[in-house]
Computed example of a mutant assay.
Amino acid sequence: MAMRSIKAAAGLTALMVLAVPARSEPITFSSDTFQIIGGMSSEATPTRRGNYRGMETVDFKTELAPGTILVRTRERKLYYVLPEGRAIQYGIGVGREGFTWSGTDKITRKAEWPDWRPPKEMIAREARRGNYIPVHMLGGPDNPLGARALYIGTTMYRIHGTTQPWSIGMAVSSGCIRLLNEEVIDLFNRVDVGATVVVE
């Protein structure tokens, strides 16, 4: 992978996560929408949402420059670093066992209601489980990449929204970092292409 200092669990190739697409009016999603995306089968689908209360500005001491994104996988938190010892904290969904990773890279692209092209590895893996994943899906309310996507380096990892809001705070993805749609829109509007991303 092109990510500097990146480490993927079990030598796995970077894979995708989940999300929710773009509209100006509120969108509702059923709990079973694309439940297998991000590596979850129907039998693995949680029955309740994680204990996430929403983004907030917090005290945050760090040597990272303002504008940096810091992902703390174990905490299931993403921090957007602000000046003067502050950060905006977001709850996230992270990679399930065997799909976590760490590294430092840059945001190389931003997209509103992005198309989704799942990796061949994910399509094959899900086919073995009897689940169908399309080769390509246009952006929209049912698209697993959600309302916004921030692309990390040249990897297949993304920071994006989700069609599974109950999964925030949980380890259920194939390696991407997912946020609630409304919160990924907020982050998207703050982050510049070229911003540093640190995943711990």
Rank of each mutant, 00 (worst) to 15 (best):
112 E>N: 12
99 F>P: 01
13 T>E: 15
125 R>L: 14
130 G>N: 05
177 I>C: 04
35 Q>N: 11
185 I>Y: 05
107 I>N: 06
33 T>I: 12
108 T>R: 10
28 T>S: 12
32 D>T: 13
146 G>E: 02
177 I>T: 08
200 E>H: 02
170 M>W: 04
106 K>C: 11
42 S>A: 14
183 E>M: 07
183 E>P: 02
198 V>P: 01
28 T>I: 10
10 A>D: 04
184 V>P: 02
177 I>E: 02
24 S>D: 12
74 R>Q: 14
110 K>V: 04
129 R>A: 11
48 R>A: 07
77 K>W: 05
154 T>P: 01
182 E>A: 14
138 L>M: 08
53 R>N: 11
27 I>E: 06
125 R>E: 15
163 T>W: 07
151 Y>P: 00
4 R>W: 09
35 Q>R: 07
23 R>E: 14
157 Y>T: 02
167 S>D: 11
88 I>Y: 07
192 D>Q: 03
196 T>F: 01
14 A>S: 15
145 L>N: 11
95 G>N: 03
60 F>R: 11
104 T>K: 11
101 W>N: 00
53 R>K: 13
99 F>A: 07
117 R>F: 13
79 Y>F: 15
73 T>S: 08
14 A>Q: 11
107 I>T: 05
35 Q>E: 13
184 V>L: 03
122 M>L: 15
136 H>Q: 06
31 S>D: 14
192 D>W: 01
27 I>N: 02
200 E>R: 03
26 P>F: 04
180 L>P: 01
67 G>D: 03
95 G>D: 01
140 G>F: 05
35 Q>L: 12
139 G>W: 01
90 Y>C: 10
59 D>F: 08
156 M>W: 09
84 E>T: 13
86 R>M: 14
162 T>N: 08
147 A>W: 03
135 V>W: 11
20 V>F: 02
87 A>H: 03
162 T>F: 08
44 A>K: 12
20 V>P: 00
121 E>Y: 09
83 P>W: 13
90 Y>K: 09
74 R>K: 14
182 E>F: 08
112 E>R: 12
109 R>A: 09
138 L>T: 10
193 V>T: 06
61 K>S: 15
2 A>R: 09
21 P>G: 15
110 K>L: 06
200 E>P: 01
33 T>D: 04
73 T>I: 15
28 T>G: 10
189 N>Q: 08
176 C>V: 08
111 A>Y: 02
60 F>D: 10
181 N>S: 07
111 A>R: 07
170 M>E: 06
164 Q>T: 12
125 R>D: 15
131 N>Y: 15
150 L>E: 06
99 F>D: 02
163 T>C: 12
105 D>H: 05
43 E>S: 12
31 S>N: 13
43 E>G: 07
160 H>A: 06
132 Y>A: 07
49 R>S: 09
83 P>Y: 13
190 R>G: 00
191 V>F: 02
39 G>M: 08
150 L>Y: 04
106 K>W: 10
57 T>P: 00
123 I>G: 01
148 R>F: 03
41 S>T: 15
90 Y>S: 11
31 S>Y: 13
127 A>S: 08
119 P>N: 11
170 M>H: 05
158 R>K: 12
19 A>W: 08
89 Q>E: 15
5 S>T: 01
36 I>G: 12
105 D>C: 05
123 I>A: 04
4 R>L: 13
81 V>S: 10
58 V>I: 14
